[in-house]
Simulated assay, not measured.
Amino acid sequence: MTKLAPVRTPALLALFSHLCALMACWLLLFASARLLGVQVTLLVASLIQGLLAALIGQRLGLSGWWWPINLGFFPGLVLMQNYALPPWVPLIGFVVLLLLNWNALVERVPLYLTGPAAERVLAERLARLGDGFRFVDLGCGVGGSLLRLARAYPTASFVGVETAPLSFLICWLRCLPRRNCSVRMRSLWREPLGRYDAVYCFLSPAPMPRLWEKARIEMRPGALLISNSFEVPGVPAEEVLPVDDLRRSRLLIWRPGHAAAPDGPGANG
């Protein structure tokens, strides 16, 4: 059995980045004051600390969405102190971020949103499946792409899977008016994949090996596993669809079933 790499919790890496940045910032300001006679305001010091924390976090492998959080955390605290905001304001902000990004803490899967260009390429590829296909978005977030795809293909069936509480609630409310779209508050590891013709995910590198094994066991021949940007280590994609966006994204497509079959629900039995 293949050994998995040790889990590195992003929240702990972010905390470690801030601790290192605090120490480095204190040493830098202390040396500047003693040697050069330069003193800075608390806001400038917090900006220096935030920049160092963001750089350290990036070097430690934190995803890009952590950059503005690390950069703005301490400056935000200083600004709130200056404006005498009540203490529950940052607490509410933290709770909202936590409820939206719960998966980043427990499964190293941050809240990535499918961009418009990637969504167009995905919609064009789904058109080749024929009428009545079944689609699941593993980690659908707030459901924007899921709903737009459901509107584009009214005869198909769309399911979202999400465990971040606030993201799930927003997606559930948005899905209510659509009969061909639903969302489940369920871990992607508990969602059976054998019922779907297309399985879409925009996760992170961490869960891709385990997802591949799950898909290889559960998915039917000919069904598509579509990953936005993230590869399965050691398994070349059967199709690579480039996306014209700033991140130079790609849609990577595999057929994990044991035998390939023609596209379309009818081909899968």
Rank of each mutant, 00 (worst) to 15 (best):
residue 254 W to N: 05
residue 33 A to W: 09
residue 223 A to E: 11
residue 37 G to E: 06
residue 100 L to E: 05
residue 187 S to F: 08
residue 150 A to E: 07
residue 157 S to P: 02
residue 113 L to K: 07
residue 188 L to I: 05
residue 134 R to E: 09
residue 155 T to A: 12
residue 118 A to C: 05
residue 20 C to E: 05
residue 83 Y to H: 13
residue 183 V to E: 03
residue 54 A to S: 13
residue 72 G to E: 04
residue 205 P to S: 02
residue 268 N to P: 08
residue 146 L to R: 08
residue 140 C to L: 12
residue 213 E to K: 12
residue 116 P to Y: 06
residue 210 R to N: 08
residue 194 G to D: 14
residue 168 F to Q: 09
residue 83 Y to M: 10
residue 264 G to P: 08
residue 55 L to S: 11
residue 216 R to S: 15
residue 70 N to A: 13
residue 117 A to G: 01
residue 5 A to N: 05
residue 98 L to N: 04
residue 104 A to C: 07
residue 164 A to K: 06
residue 110 P to C: 03
residue 206 A to C: 02
residue 266 G to E: 11
residue 47 L to C: 15
residue 62 L to S: 01
residue 238 E to I: 05
residue 242 P to I: 06
residue 248 R to I: 06
residue 185 M to W: 12
residue 256 P to T: 07
residue 93 G to D: 03
residue 58 Q to H: 11
residue 68 P to T: 09
residue 84 A to T: 08
residue 241 L to Q: 07
residue 191 E to V: 10
residue 88 W to K: 07
residue 50 G to F: 11
residue 39 Q to P: 00
residue 21 A to K: 03
residue 222 G to V: 05
residue 229 S to N: 14
residue 215 A to Y: 12
residue 243 V to M: 02
residue 239 E to H: 14
residue 169 L to S: 10
residue 77 L to K: 01
residue 21 A to P: 01
residue 28 L to Y: 04
residue 183 V to K: 02
residue 96 V to I: 15
residue 123 A to G: 14
residue 257 G to H: 00
residue 146 L to M: 07
residue 253 I to F: 05
residue 98 L to T: 09
residue 64 G to S: 11
residue 26 W to P: 00
residue 179 R to Y: 08
residue 194 G to A: 09
residue 203 L to T: 06
residue 182 S to N: 13
residue 72 G to Y: 00
residue 184 R to Y: 15
residue 106 V to W: 14
residue 74 F to I: 15
residue 120 R to F: 01
residue 122 L to F: 05
residue 91 L to H: 04
residue 122 L to I: 04
residue 224 L to N: 04
residue 128 R to G: 14
residue 28 L to Q: 02
residue 78 V to S: 02
residue 121 V to A: 12
residue 139 G to A: 13
residue 236 P to M: 07
residue 165 P to H: 10
residue 238 E to P: 06
residue 218 E to Q: 15
residue 177 P to Y: 06
residue 105 L to D: 04
residue 44 V to M: 10
residue 93 G to H: 05
residue 38 V to Y: 10
residue 237 A to D: 11
residue 100 L to N: 07
residue 114 T to L: 08
residue 119 E to I: 00
residue 162 E to P: 10
residue 29 L to V: 09
residue 11 A to H: 12
residue 43 L to W: 06
residue 29 L to P: 02
residue 264 G to I: 08
residue 104 A to K: 00
residue 231 E to K: 13
residue 167 S to I: 05
residue 57 G to V: 00
residue 41 T to A: 08
residue 59 R to D: 00
residue 59 R to K: 07
residue 76 G to D: 01
residue 156 A to W: 02
residue 93 G to A: 08
residue 210 R to H: 10
residue 241 L to S: 06
residue 198 A to R: 07
residue 94 F to G: 15
residue 215 A to S: 14
residue 76 G to H: 04
residue 46 S to L: 04
residue 8 R to W: 07
residue 72 G to F: 08
residue 261 A to T: 14
residue 142 V to C: 15
residue 39 Q to R: 13
residue 107 E to F: 06
residue 174 R to V: 07
residue 183 V to D: 04
residue 255 R to N: 14
residue 12 L to W: 09
residue 137 D to F: 04
residue 157 S to W: 04
residue 138 L to W: 09
residue 241 L to M: 11
residue 85 L to E: 03
residue 217 I to F: 09
residue 117 A to P: 03
residue 200 Y to M: 13
residue 96 V to A: 09
